[in-house]
Simulated scan of single mutants.
Amino acid sequence: MPRHPITLSLRRLLIGGLLMLGAWANAAPPAGLEQLARDWLQPAIDQAMAQDGGMPLRAEVVMGNLDSRLRLAPCQAIEPYLPPGTKLWGRSRIGLRCTDGVARWNVYVPVTIKAFGPAWVLKAPVAAGETLTQDQAELTEVDWASHPSPVLATPERWVGQTTAYALSPGQTLRENMVRAQTAFEAGSPVKVVSGGSGFAVSVMGQAISEGRVGESARVRLPSGKVVNGVVRPDQTVELAM
């Protein structure tokens, strides 16, 4: 799955060495740390949501709470950071560590980032293997970050696809729910086409792998050579020149 823009923006801030310095001469109470984490996070989210060419998403940040009984040693410099292996999309956490104090400490603030935007939601149940049509879903606002699989934001990405499993009303259409239509099975005779400026050639071959529309498939030519091409809706395989 591709990285989300929120994660990429935060990593740019981290590489730039963003360091929150404040007047933390006294022990930092949990509420203050939570606010520090929020203040560090908000500019990165604003930057990600303002990126040109992206879908119009509206961010909502839900900060978790540290133990109210927590008391930490005085610290002159507290650094917020994104823990390795985590991403800020859905449920995550922000690390806060003391880099200049009598005692070094490290705590984590839980955070949930919701990203609301337009998406296609099913209006009725759909059986596994059924071909989707546009009238089966309606456009509404959903939380894109509620599931790790990317949202299929435009009809071109799901209309004509088949469902990977049975779906229920109210489900948002995502990449893991659909598969391209099967054009032919492995072992089937397949026409292989290729062409360029002013010419076109075609030859019959035998499919080595299953062919799904828009995806790559392997075909053995009469010469014995195996080629890869893109499966077209007319059940042909097109080779790139």
Rank of each mutant, 00 (worst) to 15 (best):
H4M: 14
I15D: 15
G16Y: 02
A23V: 09
P29A: 14
P30A: 08
A37K: 02
A37D: 03
R38H: 07
M49C: 13
G54E: 15
M55T: 04
V62K: 10
L70D: 00
L70N: 01
R71N: 08
L72S: 00
L72T: 01
L72H: 01
C75Q: 04
I78S: 02
L82E: 03
G85E: 06
K87N: 06
S92I: 11
R93V: 05
G101K: 05
A103I: 14
W105T: 02
V111Q: 03
K114E: 14
G117S: 07
L122S: 04
L122E: 08
K123N: 12
A124R: 14
E130G: 08
D135F: 03
E138L: 11
S146W: 07
W158D: 02
W158C: 03
V159M: 02
G160A: 10
Q161N: 09
T162E: 08
T163L: 06
L173W: 01
E175I: 04
N176A: 13
P189W: 12
G195D: 09
V203D: 04
R212F: 11
G214D: 06
A217Y: 00
A217Q: 02
L221A: 09
G224M: 08
N228A: 15
R232D: 06
T236L: 05
V237D: 00
V237S: 02
E238N: 09
E238M: 14
E238L: 14
